[in-house]
Design a binder for these strands. Structure first.
Lengths: 141, 141
DNA sequence: TATTGTTATACTCTATAACTATA
DNA sequence: TATAGTTATAGAGTATAACAATA
């Protein structure tokens, strides 16, 4: 009996990841909305670990520098971040958290981690295998 | 000797998936841009398998029905889709591909599948395991 | 001269509320 | 009355081009 032609596992895995991405999108929009943030404002807070130049933020957010001006304007209006002139180069402005911004960031982290229960459906041993495979898929990105 | 406290595998897996989501975003924007599509226009084409009522599209795209009007207006202006009045209920409008739209959809599918090489870094056996674990994580979504 | 960030402009996406045409 | 889709409006994200300040 001939083996049936099946979709290859890499392709199906990729389609499942796309489905995961989309399902995540809805929950993300909802979670950050409850914190009074737009998606891009939330991403900006997510990536703000150390003081970050505007130009690096543009690279990280995958958008033009002119957009970052507006996104940061609105975060600054909410008193979540502040612009600081960089020490070595007066052209550069670095972004830092306010204490209010740090608090929102912590709530954001908690909300995003709360979205993970789907992985909890796996056994502990399976979670370890899944993590290891994900590491190898994601690391080169 | 005490076991060191480590981040649990489910949490780390989730963080890796978030990283994957973000890396995917940049390539997605670039790929669909080369096809002359905005992200939401591309998503609309992705979800258009069978003729689809506008209201279902709004649910799928996670946005208000009023937005769908504009998104579909622009896709229709590009002659990629057409509105058809539904047979049973004249209030409902269903969306269908034009032949040009079907062609763009095929190019879109090909471009998105081209983004999957990260999974190809796993061995065939690992890909099967990865697919199985992903199925169980994604299925309930 | 080159670079960082801003402004001006135009387009897309977003939700809310009011509207229409059907049911 | 209720529902499907549209329109009007205002706000947010987007890229391009021109600009100011600094290097």
């Amino acid at each position: 009996m001939a083996t049936r032609t099946r979709i290859d596992p890499a392709t199906e895995a990729w389609k499942l990841m796309m489905k995961l991405v989309w399902a995540h999108r809805g929950r993300f929009i909802e979670s950050v909305g409850e914190l009074g943030l737009s998606p891009m404002q939330a991403h900006t807070l997510r990536f703000l670990q150390q003081p970050l130049p505007m130009s690096e933020l543009a690279d990280t957010l995958w958008c033009d520098a002119s957009n970052v001006t507006g996104i940061v304007d609105r975060l600054e209006a909410k008193r979540l971040v502040e612009r600081r002139v960089a020490v070595g180069d007066r052209r550069v402005k670095t972004l830092v958290f306010t204490s209010k911004g740090r608090a929102v960031r912590r709530r954001l982290d908690a909300a995003l981690l709360d979205e993970s229960p789907a992985v909890a459906r796996l056994t502990r041993a399976e979670q370890r295998v899944f993590r290891e495979l994900l590491r190898r898929v994601v690391t080169p990105l």
